[in-house]
Amino acid sequence: MTIKNPSASTADASQSVALTINGVAVNAHAGVTVVEAAWEGGVPRVTGVGCMEGVCGSCRIMLKRGKQVSVGLACQTFVENGAEVIFLPPASAPRHHYELNDFKDGWDIHERFQDIFPEAARCRHCHGCDVSCPKGIKVEEGVAQAAAGRFRDAGETFFECVMCELCDGACPELIAPAHVGLFSRRVTAHFHLRPPNLIHRLEELRQDKDKPGMTREEKDE
């Protein structure tokens, strides 16, 4: 997918670009995004849009140029002559379930991961996820890191993930890489982030609270 605006520097707004969005023919100004083009062109029900700056992952589209098909984010995709754009429906409900509060400690986390995401060990290295990721994340590598129990590294790989779940849709093994990424990030914080300055302040506040007979004003003196 091209996310670079071809006309950013030379933007000639008077030039018109013809494309279809959800089957509706639209004429748009050169240099606008697919979202703006859909609105200006009166395409109905384009509400899979939020931040318009590529961080919320809502505006998932499929883009056809001739024979070439790709997926991406509408707010990061600029109009092109002859393109066919379809806004994708919301992703279906996740198939993997866990609650962090159910985990006792970090020692059995690898085992837990295998129970929750058994498919992750079966990655076929087909690159489907990498190709579909609008953020250029090395999704496949992240999945491999998680499958090897390297959750901190995996989480770091997914750092720029905007939870669009396009990689989930592309995965033939139903691994749900987006959720593997979030799992990796979450367990890293949940079990390992123990900052001394925060812990110290929490302890001070706890002791303050336990001191009997003092009003808050007195404590704050």
Binding site: R185, R186, T188, P195, P196, L198, R201, L202, L205
Partner: peptide, 23 residues
């Protein structure tokens, strides 16, 4: 404030740390 940070970390949120591990 401090308790909110602890709760967020419990939910799995990461924050920038110093080399000493402080937030």
């Amino acid at each position: 404030g401090p308790e909110v940070l602890r709760w967020l970390i419990q939910q799995g949120m990461q924050f920038e740390q110093t080399t000493g591990g402080d937030l």
